[in-house]
Simulated assay, not measured.
Amino acid sequence: MLRSSFAAVLALSAGAVSPASGLAAPVVAPGLAPHRAIYDIELKEASEQSGIESMRGRMVYEFNGSQCTGYTTSFRFVTEIESGEEVSVTDQQIKTFEDLVTRRFDFDSKSYTDDKLDKGVRGAAVVAGSGIKVELQEPASRNVELADAKFPAEHMVDLIRQARNGARFFEARIFDGTEDGDKSYLTTTIVGRSEAAKGGDHAGIVEQALAEASYWPVSIAYFDDKAIGDQLPVYTQSFKLYDNGVTRDLTLDYGDIVLSGRLAKLEMLEAAGCN
C-alpha cells in the first residue's frame, strides 16, 4: 500500500476556522513548485515471511496546477519482484485532482500485475458539514460517509506550515483514496530540525534545482482508523522535504519489506498563474 499522500505535494491559514460557516477556511499555498520527479527504488530489507528475494523499480511523480485552479498529480510506481523462481512486475497508477478552496478530492487508481488489472478504484470526496462524503464509481457505485479528514495536498501544506513554525510532532486524519477508497487513516508526523545542504549532498540535476536549499527530515506513520488499543503502523514513510514541496531520499516501510528511493531526476515545471 503506497500512500499517494507522499506524492500529493503541496499556508499559513491551513486549519483555520471560518466564524461564518464553521468550516475550514480555504487553504492558501504560496510557493508550491510544479515538478516532475523520478525515483529509483531498491529493496532495503525483507523478512523471510515476505518471500521476496529481490525487488527494484522506478517511481514517477508529476505535480501541476495552482491554488486557484486546483492541483493535479500523476503517479506511477513500477516494480520488478523476484520471489524464488518467479519474477513478477507490478504497476500502480494514480491520478488525482484536489481543490484546496472547495476541499474536493477526485481520485482514480489502477493496479496491475504482469499487465493484468488487479484493481481499479475511482471516486470523489468532498467535505460536507463535520465530515466528508465519498462517492465511489469503481469498482462499484456506492456512497461512504467518514469523519472529517485532510486530503493529501492540504495535509502537505499543513506539514510545511508546521515545520516552518518549529513544530516537531503532530497528528492528523488523512483521506487519500488508496486501497478501496472508503476509509481514512490516522497519522503521526515527526519533523526534524531544518538542515542545510552540504557538499556532495546532491547529485547532478538535483543539485542544480535544489542547490543551497535547506530541508526537513520527515517521518509519517499511518494507522488503521478503526483499530482499537495499541497498534503498529500499517505503513511508514520517511523523506527529506523542501519547502517548495520537493522530496528526496525516501524510505518506504511496509512492515515485511522496506524500500529506499533515490531522486534520480528532477524537472521543475512552469508554474500556473492565478487570474
Score class of each variant (00 low, 15 high):
Arg58Cys: 02
Ile205Ser: 12
Ala211Asp: 09
Ala128Arg: 13
Leu269Gly: 11
Val191Arg: 01
Glu270Leu: 07
Gly181Met: 02
Asp108Met: 07
Val206His: 05
Phe6Thr: 12
Ile94Ala: 05
Gly229Met: 10
Met268Gln: 13
Thr102Phe: 03
Asp115Cys: 02
Val89Met: 10
Pro30Met: 01
Ala163His: 04
Thr178Gly: 08
Ala7Gly: 12
Gly273Phe: 03
Lys198Met: 12
Pro217Gly: 07
Ser18Asn: 15
Glu85Ala: 15
Lys116Gly: 09
Val191Ala: 05
Lys119Ser: 09
Leu117Arg: 07
Gly70Glu: 01
Thr113Trp: 09
Lys110Asn: 03
Ala271Cys: 01
Ser13Pro: 03
Ala221Ser: 14
Thr187Ala: 04
Ala163Phe: 05
Gly22Val: 14
Tyr215Glu: 01
Phe75Thr: 02
Tyr254Gln: 05
Glu267Cys: 12
Ala125Ile: 01
Pro152His: 04
Ser5Val: 09
Gly199Asn: 07
Ser238Glu: 06
Glu145Val: 15
Ser109Lys: 00
Ile132Gln: 05
Gln208Thr: 14
Asn165Met: 09
Phe107Pro: 12
Arg248Glu: 15
Ala271Asp: 06
Leu232Phe: 12
Leu259His: 04
Gly261Trp: 01
Pro34Tyr: 11
Gln237Arg: 03
Ala147Arg: 08
Arg103Tyr: 08
Tyr254Pro: 08
Leu269Ala: 08
Gly245Glu: 02
Phe151Val: 06
Ala209Leu: 03
Val89Asp: 00
Glu80His: 13
Val121Asp: 08
Ala209Asp: 01
Glu171Thr: 15
Ala140Trp: 04
Val144Ile: 14
Ser66Met: 09
Gln93Tyr: 12
Phe77Pro: 08
Glu270His: 12
Val157Gly: 00
Val87Pro: 07
Met55Lys: 11
Ser4Thr: 05
Lys183Asn: 03
Gly129Cys: 14
Tyr71Ala: 06
Gly131Cys: 11
Ile132Arg: 01
Tyr215Met: 08
Asp108Phe: 07
Tyr222Glu: 02
Val78His: 00
Leu43Cys: 13
Leu23Ala: 13
Glu82Trp: 13
Glu80Cys: 14
Ser74Glu: 01
Phe6Cys: 10
Ser50Thr: 13
Tyr71Gln: 01
Ile257Val: 15
Gly273Tyr: 00
Ala7Ile: 03
Ser50Arg: 00
Asp158Pro: 00
Arg104Tyr: 04
Ser47Val: 14
Lys44Ile: 03
Ala147Ile: 08
Glu48Asp: 12
Arg76Lys: 13
Ser194Tyr: 06
Asp224Gly: 06
Arg248Pro: 04
Gly31Ile: 01
Gly70Asn: 09
Ser5Ile: 05
Tyr222His: 09
Asp224Met: 04
Gln67Ser: 13
Ala37Asn: 06
Gln162Val: 04
Tyr215Trp: 09
Ala25Ile: 10
